[in-house]
């Protein structure tokens, strides 16, 4: 009998090369269903590459070579040809908010429409639910048909989250989602993530260790393409097992 899995994603021996440059080396970790996993580490530690593998956006990068296995339920995520379906199930938010040059409504409807949802009633519900879940509804409900690019940076980032949520993803990947935002907008995005935790599995890559310590259930520390340490957030920040982790969270490098 197959045991019911409690892992949203199970990653085994993942390595990524760009040409002869190694970006990730032999990463193995399980991401639990519904958790908010923080990933910290200095630049070039492989955090972003790790995210792009999880929803196969790595396919769009030239010269990327990926080895290892990733299991999502019954799906062999790295082998499947159904890349679009993977990207719908595993949404991604980028460091800089990228609102598409459409209306606010058009942005949120974009994913569902491309996957074949046409019914205006269903789309309306999706738009409202997703914007509410991303904490943006009250700010935009009266101007859903105005251009999304007129929104502020923080609003655009929450729009990006709403847009990804409209596809009802199982996993949401966020790549330093607050790096371009002011503290107030950052706080709003963090509130949004905390509210989403539990319903959606979230992987949050951040350059700011304090952000991980504020919101993450567990935190992983990446360095030079390797997973140095993974532990409950509180344990990792108070009693790091590896001296490199300790040095990083104390701000000695990175």
């Amino acid at each position: 009998m197959v045991m019911p899995t409690t892992d949203a994603l199970s990653i085994q021996n993942l390595s990524v090369n760009f040409g002869n440059k190694t970006a990730l080396r032999d990463i193995s970790l399980d991401i639990h269903k519904g958790e908010l996993l923080g990933i910290i580490g200095p630049t070039t530690s492989g955090k972003t590459t790790f995210l792009t593998v999880l929803n196969r956006m790595i396919d769009t990068l030239p010269d990327a070579k990926v080895r290892g296995r990733i299991r999502m339920g019954d799906l062999n995520l790295l082998a499947t040809q159904q890349v679009q379906s993977v990207r719908r199930r595993v949404g991604m938010i980028f460091a800089l908010p990228v609102a598409l040059p459409l209306t606010i409504r058009g942005n949120v409807e974009y994913g569902p429409r491309r996957s074949g949802v046409r019914d205006p009633g269903i789309l309306d519900v999706l738009v409202e639910d997703s914007l509410k879940a991303a904490g943006l509804w009250e700010e935009v409900e009266t101007r859903l048909d105005s251009p999304a690019l007129k929104l502020s940076g923080g609003q655009q980032q929450r729009l990006c989250i709403a847009r990804a949520l409209a596809l009802k993803p199982e996993v949401l990947l966020l790549d330093e989602p607050c790096s371009g935002l002011d503290p107030l907008s950052t706080a709003r995005v963090e509130d949004t993530l905390i509210a989403l935790r539990g319903d959606v599995t979230i992987v949050l890559v951040t350059n700011n260790p304090y952000q991980a310590s504020r919101v993450a259930d567990r935190t992983a520390f990446f360095l030079g393409g390797e997973l140095v340490e993974l532990n409950d957030t509180k344990a990792l920040f108070t009693l790091p097992k590896d001296e490199r982790t300790q040095a990083y969270i104390e701000g000695k490098f990175g």
Binding site: G91, F94, V98, C160
Partner: peptide, 25 residues
């Protein structure tokens, strides 16, 4: 390019990205 990347990340195909994002703009 960031529009193409955003569109692909939302599960759109290459052609859908061309048809709905690149060509209109």
């Amino acid at each position: 390019d960031r529009f193409r990347v955003a569109s692909l990340a939302l599960g759109a195909s290459r052609w859908q990205t061309v048809r709905h994002i690149v060509l209109p703009n």
